[in-house]
C-alpha cells in the first residue's frame, strides 16, 4: 500500500520527467564540442593516410625508379606503371596512374617503396568533378608532392623514430 502511494506520488510529481529535463537543460549551457570544419581542423596523426603524392629529391630529380613494388603490393590494383630507360641510363616511369576509386588507402605502396617516392599525404578533403578525375596521373602526383613537400617531410620526420 505504502509502496503504491509512493509510486503514485512519484509518477504524478513527474520526477522522472524533471530529472530528464534537468539533464538537457544542463547540456544546453555546456560548451559545444563541434569543430567548424573548413575553418578548424582536428589534429591529424603523422601516419594519416590521405591523398597520394610522388616526391622528388632536393635537386629536383624524381625519386621513383619504376621498380613497380607498389604496383605489385597494391591489394586493390589501383596503381598502373609504365617505364622506360632514360638517355642517362636510369630507369624512370613514363606513366604512373592511381585510380582513387579503387584505392583503399591501406598505405602498402608507401611501405613497399624503397626510395620513399610514393607517399600518402594528410590531404583528405578532395573532390572530383568527373569520373575520369578519379585517376591521378604522374604529373598530378608530382604536383601534389611539390606542393606539400614540407608537410610530407615533417610527417616522415615525426614518425621516423617509431619505424
Amino acid at each position: 500500500m505504502i509502496k503504491k502511494v509512493k509510486k503514485l506520488v512519484k509518477d504524478f510529481g513527474l520526477s522522472e520527467i524533471r530529472a530528464g529535463m534537468k539533464i538537457t537543460a544542463k547540456q544546453l549551457v555546456t560548451d559545444k564540442i563541434t569543430v567548424q570544419f573548413p575553418e578548424e581542423r582536428t589534429p591529424i596523426s603523422p601516419r594519416f593516410r590521405g591523398l597520394h603524392a610522388l616526391r622528388r629529391y632536393p635537386n629536383g630529380e624524381e625519386r621513383c625508379i619504376a621498380c613497380k613494388l607498389c604496383e605489385a603490393v597494391c591489394p586493390a590494383n589501383a596503381i598502373t606503371i609504365e617505364s622506360e630507360m632514360r638517355d642517362d641510363g636510369t630507369r624512370r616511369t613514363t606513366q604512373y596512374d592511381i585510380d582513387l576509386f579503387k584505392c583503399i588507402f591501406c598505405g602498402f605502396c608507401e611501405e613497399a617503396c624503397p626510395v620513399d617516392a610514393i607517399v600518402e599525404t594528410h590531404i583528405f578533403d578532395y573532390a572530383f568533378e568527373s569520373r575520369e578525375g578519379s585517376i591521378i596521373d604522374k604529373e598530378g602526383l608530382l604536383a601534389i608532392g611539390d606542393e606539400n613537400e614540407k608537410a610530407i617531410g615533417q610527417a616522415r620526420a615525426e614518425d621516423s623514430k617509431y619505424r
Binding site: T24, A25, Q27, L28, T30, K32, I33, T34, Q36
Partner: peptide, 13 residues
C-alpha cells in the same frame, strides 16, 4: 538551434 545545443551541437550557423 536549441535542440542542437541540447545535443552538444551548435545547429545551423
Amino acid at each position: 538551434k536549441v535542440i542542437g545545443y541540447m545535443q552538444l551541437r551548435i545547429g545551423p550557423n
